[in-house]
Simulated scan of single mutants.
Amino acid sequence: MTTPTLTEFLARPGKALAKGPLAMVFAEDETEIASTLRHHLDLGFKSVLLLAPDSFVTAPDVLAEPALHRIRFDTARGDDPIAAVNAVAGAAPGLWMYYCFNAEYLFYPFCETRSIGELLAFHAEERRDAMLTYVIDIYAPNLARHPDAVSLEEAQLDRSGYYALGRPDPENHNHPKERQLDFFGGLRWRFEEHIPQNRRKIDRIALFRAREGVALRADHTFTDEEYNTYACPWHNNLTAAIASFRTAKALKRNPGSTFDIETFTWHNSVPFEWHSRQLLDLGLMEPGQWF
């Protein structure tokens, strides 16, 4: 059976869009596709869409998962993930959705014992339709051994160096946007000379409830400003984190930066424990009122 394009899939989605939450994984290369898919399947997503070129190979057992749906998609040839997220959202209003790229792994408070459905059910009870996630860079410590900077077994992250600035409001130059911040840190901060200014932020509204007339923008925020807030006006809300090799991969593959970087390790590097408790302890996500 041939792999459908996104247009073909959305015309006949079967049960894939019947019940959420739904995850979209965009494969930009073949790095850790299987581990990315397994991680999100294990979190309890009802459907996981793999958007990848037909030539990308991944583990047969993962592809055989009933919840997994493969879609022909090629970012190298101009297919746009932002447009794809909006197309899927437009086809399933009301559904909770999540999107990421290969070699990225979602973590949220207590994810080892609670499903993504439980998380979003609580978040919805607090009248929230979107959740802020921080993209936390992880990287291999030894680039001679792992030239693409990817190692699940030896992954490290920065334990400090994260900060936030008020998000400017173009319509009110005297005050930043309410309950919105631009977050920075990790490799995009430490190697900012190699990162375009408009790509240095590490915040992404990666979890959201699809709604008619609300669209994802290229900077990973939404056209509804309330979707972009980190909390409601009354108290702190849940936030999540995405452990991501994506920036490390790009810095080592880009000819303009690869020879300038001998290692990503510095005095604030610590082993990544692949556990939500570490991210909570480092202040890289917020449990809000959920215990």
Rank of each mutant, 00 (worst) to 15 (best):
H39R: 12
W189V: 00
L68T: 06
L280D: 13
N172L: 01
E212N: 14
R179S: 03
E30R: 08
S115K: 06
K201G: 08
A64C: 01
L152D: 02
S35K: 12
K19D: 12
D169A: 00
A76R: 15
T75I: 14
F101R: 15
N237S: 15
E126T: 11
D281V: 03
E112P: 15
S160E: 15
A83P: 00
A218T: 14
R200Q: 14
A206Y: 05
F56Q: 03
D29W: 03
T36Y: 09
E28M: 12
P81D: 10
H39E: 09
N86H: 05
A76W: 07
G90L: 01
F264Q: 13
G117R: 10
D29N: 14
H275T: 12
L280M: 15
Y105D: 10
R12K: 15
A155V: 00
H40Y: 06
R145F: 00
Y227Q: 13
R179Y: 05
A144D: 13
Y134F: 10
Q289Y: 08
G117C: 05
T133G: 07
L207G: 01
G44S: 11
M24G: 11
K249T: 04
A210C: 12
G213V: 09
Y134M: 00
N237K: 06
L251D: 03
L22W: 12
P13G: 07
P287T: 10
E32M: 10
G186R: 01
R246T: 10
R200S: 03
T3N: 03
A248D: 07
L43F: 08
P287W: 10
L6V: 05
L49G: 06
D203M: 06
F245D: 13
E8P: 11
H69E: 11
H123K: 02
A140H: 04
L17K: 03
F245S: 11
F110P: 07
Q156G: 04
Y108K: 09
A206E: 05
L10H: 13
L119K: 01
F26Q: 13
D219I: 08
E125T: 14
R70G: 01
A248C: 02
F107I: 11
N172F: 03
C111T: 07
H194L: 03
L207C: 07
H194P: 05
N142L: 02
T223G: 04
A18H: 05
P109D: 10
A89C: 07
I136D: 01
R217F: 03
L251G: 02
G14Q: 06
N228K: 12
P60A: 11
E118I: 04
E104N: 06
P109C: 03
V214L: 07
H235Q: 12
Y98T: 09
E65H: 13
D219C: 07
R188W: 04
I33K: 13
A250V: 05
F110I: 00
L216K: 15
A240E: 09
E193A: 09
V214S: 08
R70I: 04
L238V: 15
A241R: 07
A206F: 04
W266D: 15
E32D: 11
R159L: 09
E171H: 11
P176E: 00
T221S: 12
E225L: 08
A240N: 06
K249C: 08
T113L: 04
V270F: 14
V57L: 02
R167N: 03
R38T: 12
A64I: 01
L280S: 14
G283M: 13
T239A: 06
T2I: 01
E153P: 03
M1K: 10
A76M: 13
